[in-house]
Amino acid sequence: VFVDDHLLEKVLELNAKGEKRLIKTWSRRSTIVPEMVGHTIAVYNGKQHVPVYITENMVGHKLGEFAP
């Protein structure tokens, strides 16, 4: 499973602090992992960042699938 390192670091850091804030990313190719559930990730679609709230059903899919 591929997840960009910088994105995973941000998610794990927020989980350690117990925070839930918006994470901006250009990494549409990253796979959604269970650690991301409950976070809102702003995924770049080529024009703007689209906020995507991550749920359990999204695990295993790519971030780009949810930012048309």
Rank of each mutant, 00 (worst) to 15 (best):
V1C: 15
V1N: 14
V1R: 06
V1Y: 06
V1T: 10
V1A: 15
V1L: 05
F2S: 05
F2N: 06
F2W: 14
V3D: 06
V3Y: 04
V3P: 04
V3W: 05
V3T: 06
V3L: 04
D4P: 03
D4F: 02
D4L: 02
D4W: 02
D4H: 04
D5C: 15
D5T: 15
D5G: 15
D5P: 15
H6S: 12
H6V: 15
H6L: 15
H6A: 15
L7V: 03
L7T: 01
L7S: 01
L7M: 03
L8N: 02
L8Y: 11
L8K: 04
L8M: 13
L8A: 03
E9D: 09
E9V: 09
E9A: 15
E9P: 01
E9N: 15
K10H: 13
K10Y: 14
K10R: 12
K10V: 14
V11P: 00
V11F: 03
V11R: 00
V11D: 01
L12Q: 10
L12H: 10
L12E: 06
L12W: 07
L12G: 04
E13I: 07
E13A: 12
E13V: 06
L14A: 09
N15D: 03
N15V: 04
N15M: 03
N15L: 04
N15K: 03
N15F: 02
N15C: 03
N15E: 03
N15A: 04
A16I: 09
A16R: 13
A16L: 12
K17Q: 08
K17E: 06
K17I: 12
K17L: 13
K17F: 06
K17T: 11
G18A: 07
G18C: 09
G18I: 02
E19V: 13
E19H: 07
E19T: 08
E19C: 11
K20Q: 06
K20N: 04
K20I: 07
K20E: 03
K20W: 06
R21S: 12
R21T: 10
R21Y: 10
R21Q: 12
R21C: 15
R21N: 10
L22N: 04
L22T: 12
L22F: 05
L22P: 11
L22I: 14
L22Y: 06
L22A: 07
I23T: 02
I23F: 03
I23S: 01
I23P: 01
I23W: 01
K24S: 08
K24E: 08
K24Y: 15
K24T: 10
K24W: 15
T25V: 02
T25S: 05
T25I: 01
T25L: 01
T25A: 02
T25F: 02
T25G: 02
W26V: 05
W26F: 14
W26K: 11
W26A: 07
S27L: 05
S27C: 15
S27H: 04
R28V: 05
R28N: 04
R28Y: 07
R28Q: 05
R28T: 06
R28P: 03
R29I: 15
R29W: 12
S30I: 02
S30E: 02
S30V: 02
S30R: 02
S30D: 01
T31A: 12
T31G: 12
T31L: 06
T31C: 15
T31M: 10
T31E: 08
I32K: 00
I32W: 00
I32Y: 00
I32F: 01
I32A: 04
I32Q: 00
I32R: 00
V33I: 15
V33G: 03
V33E: 02
V33W: 03
V33H: 05
V33A: 05
P34K: 14
P34W: 13
P34M: 15
P34Y: 14
P34G: 11
P34S: 10
P34I: 14
E35H: 08
E35N: 06
E35V: 15
E35G: 07
M36S: 01
M36D: 00
M36G: 00
M36E: 00
M36Q: 01
V37A: 09
V37D: 04
V37W: 07
V37S: 08
V37Q: 09
G38V: 00
G38Y: 09
G38L: 08
G38D: 13
G38K: 06
G38H: 11
H39W: 06
H39L: 04
T40R: 09
T40I: 09
T40D: 06
T40L: 11
I41H: 00
I41W: 01
I41D: 00
I41F: 07
A42V: 04
A42W: 04
A42C: 05
V43F: 02
V43G: 00
V43Q: 01
V43L: 07
V43H: 00
V43I: 11
Y44R: 03
Y44T: 05
Y44H: 07
N45F: 10
N45A: 09
N45P: 02
N45W: 10
N45Q: 08
N45G: 05
N45I: 06
N45L: 06
G46W: 14
G46C: 15
G46S: 10
G46Y: 14
K47Q: 09
K47E: 08
K47C: 15
K47M: 10
K47R: 12
K47A: 11
K47F: 10
Q48K: 12
Q48P: 02
Q48W: 13
Q48G: 11
H49Q: 04
H49K: 03
H49I: 03
H49D: 04
H49N: 05
V50S: 09
V50L: 12
V50T: 10
V50F: 11
V50G: 03
P51F: 05
P51H: 05
P51K: 13
P51T: 11
P51D: 07
V52A: 05
V52H: 03
V52R: 05
V52S: 04
V52D: 00
V52N: 05
Y53W: 09
Y53D: 10
Y53Q: 13
Y53R: 11
I54W: 00
I54M: 08
I54S: 00
I54F: 01
I54N: 00
T55N: 10
T55D: 14
T55Y: 13
T55R: 13
T55S: 13
E56V: 13
E56G: 14
E56P: 12
E56N: 14
E56D: 12
N57R: 11
N57K: 13
M58D: 07
M58A: 08
M58E: 08
M58V: 06
M58T: 07
M58C: 07
M58P: 00
V59A: 07
V59I: 14
V59F: 14
V59N: 06
V59K: 09
G60M: 15
G60A: 11
G60I: 03
H61Y: 13
H61G: 08
H61L: 13
H61R: 14
H61N: 10
K62G: 06
K62M: 11
L63G: 00
L63A: 01
L63Y: 01
L63I: 06
G64V: 06
G64D: 06
G64F: 11
E65M: 11
E65P: 05
E65S: 11
E65G: 09
E65V: 10
E65L: 12
F66T: 04
F66C: 06
A67D: 04
A67H: 04
A67P: 04
A67S: 14
A67M: 04
A67W: 03
A67Q: 05
A67Y: 03
P68I: 11
P68Q: 08
P68L: 10
P68R: 11
P68Y: 08
